[in-house]
Amino acid sequence: MKCVGMQYLEAIRKLKASGFHPLRSVYLSFVPDEEIGGHDGVEKFVDSDVFTNMNLGIVLDEGLASPSEDYRVFYAERSPWWLVIKATGQPGHGAKLYDNSAMENLFKSIESVRRFRDSQFDLVKAGLQAEGEVVSINMVFLKAGTPSPTGFVMNLQPSVAQAGFDIRVPPTADPESLERRIAEEWAPVSRNMTFELGQFKQKANVHDKFGKPVLTATDSSNPWWDLLEEAVRKANGKLGKPEVFPAATDSRYFRELGFPAIGFSPMANTPILLHDHNEFLNQDEYLKGVDVYVSIIKAYASYVEHTRKEGSKDEL
């Protein structure tokens, strides 16, 4: 986010002006395409020699605004699965009923998806799980019809219909079970559904390269977490309960490789207006956030592991 990017830059400026000399290198990265998957951004970056030579220790990425005085902090995120379901059926005159028409087949799938979506939403409404801990699914497009030079023909059943779904999968979910649900309930071959042909436009991993859930430890086993808590406290701030980020960020590409990554934006007492009209950040909260980053970067860049060999230089 632009506000967070500027806070980082201002924090670095203040640290340099104070004469601070880090033991670890601090890298600020500005990369494109996070909103559309990051394939030409971080995904390529983490596969580069430049990244390998950085000798990474910890990653900080964006978080969300917090309406309360506590800063929100994220140790994992939901992985995006962008799915296209394609239905085929018997074309015919619009005045007739066809149980195996493309639209009829697709409507049955949409209804099955809606029931699953409601079951997940009910868990959130009942307070049993947080937003980031359930599978979310939203239909984002519906495509069907028989086109003509003047628009769509109104009296013909289309032979093909498609729907696109934005699915977000938490690291605690069972991806194999979800894929079986898609194949057996949402896009079964028995209803002339061709999910195998539509497949995913994007399907991010929910496990890292070691086969473990893609998340970062938030206890004493992770020294970077302890340093973050203490640094925020020194800057007169407080972290809320660690959460699973409800959307997707570039952090997943680092976590998939086994690196710790924390989502954090110092924006307390601020309504959540992400992608909404009139997004804003109060100037006092913005300036306080700069000081929070000064404290965090200073702590991280000064951290010396007990097993660190004299003369070596780890990176941040």
Rank of each mutant, 00 (worst) to 15 (best):
R114D: 13
K96V: 14
V124Q: 00
F141C: 12
Q90T: 15
K125S: 14
S136Y: 08
A102E: 10
S159M: 11
L83F: 06
Q162W: 04
M154L: 13
S66N: 10
S119I: 03
N55V: 03
S79C: 01
L142H: 06
G145V: 14
H93C: 02
I58S: 00
R72I: 06
V124Y: 01
E111W: 06
S159K: 09
M154A: 14
E77M: 02
Y71D: 14
G132Y: 02
S68H: 04
L56R: 09
H93V: 00
G164N: 15
Y75K: 01
V113A: 12
F74T: 11
Q120W: 04
A144Q: 13
D166W: 11
G92Q: 01
Q90L: 14
P158T: 12
V135R: 09
P147W: 12
M139S: 01
D99H: 11
Y71E: 13
V153C: 08
D70K: 10
P91D: 14
Q129R: 10
R115Q: 10
N155E: 09
D122Y: 05
W81Q: 12
Y71H: 13
S79K: 01
V169C: 00
A87C: 10
E69P: 08
S101L: 12
P147R: 15
S148P: 04
P67S: 00
M103D: 05
E131Y: 13
R117W: 04
F141I: 09
V140L: 10
A76R: 05
L123T: 13
P158V: 13
A65Q: 11
A65K: 11
A163E: 09
Q129M: 11
V153Q: 13
L97D: 02
K125R: 15
T146W: 11
I110C: 06
V73W: 07
G92I: 11
V153H: 13
Y75N: 05
A76C: 04
S109P: 03
I110P: 00
E131Q: 15
S68V: 03
F141W: 15
L97N: 04
A163Q: 12
M103R: 10
R114G: 08
W82M: 06
N100S: 09
I137Y: 06
S68Y: 01
K108N: 08
E62N: 05
R78V: 00
T146V: 14
M154P: 06
D61H: 00
A95M: 08
A126E: 12
W81C: 10
A102K: 11
L106M: 11
K125E: 15
N105Y: 02
A126Q: 09
V124A: 00
R72P: 01
W81Y: 13
H93M: 05
V73G: 09
V113Q: 07
A95E: 07
P80T: 14
P171Q: 09
E104Y: 03
V59I: 08
W81F: 12
W81N: 13
P147Y: 11
D70C: 03
N105F: 03
Q162A: 04
P158I: 12
R114P: 05
V113W: 13
G145H: 13
S68M: 01
L64E: 14
L83T: 09
Q157Y: 13
K96R: 07
E62Y: 02
P67M: 03
N138V: 07
I85A: 00
P158Q: 08
P67G: 05
Q120Y: 06
D61G: 01
V135L: 09
A95W: 08
S136Q: 12
H93W: 04
K108D: 07
H93S: 02
N100R: 07
L56F: 08
P170A: 04
I167H: 10
V113D: 04
